[in-house]
Amino acid sequence: MKILSIIAGVLMGAALVYGSLDMPKWGDPHSPASTHVSPYYLQHSIEHTATPNVVTSVLADYRGYDTLGETTVVFTAGMACLFLLGKGRKRQGK
């Protein structure tokens, strides 16, 4: 199992390194990720949301729905822990 995992890991790592050769250079200010959607957030954050912290305005306003989903994830995990570990388990397995 250990050898199989090492081989699988090395193969996957090699595939990923091969895939990273076409990536934009690290820190390139003209990469697609930095020039397509993000400038809109930086330029219009104060005008739309009056918040200088752009991360906050994206998190809470432009992509606020993802934050609601994140809150749901926390709630689900809390309920899951209560469900699994709660009191009242008289029987240990069936």
């Binding site: 990720a33 930095s34 959607v37 993000s38 957030y41 930086l42 752009v54 991360v55 994206v58 998190l59 992509r63 993802d66 934050t67 989903g69 994140e70 994830v73 926390v74």
Partner: peptide
């Protein structure tokens, strides 16, 4: 770029 920070806040949670 602010967008990856936002996405990763959610991913960390």
């Amino acid at each position: 770029n602010p967008l990856p920070h936002v996405l990763m806040l959610t991913a960390i949670v």
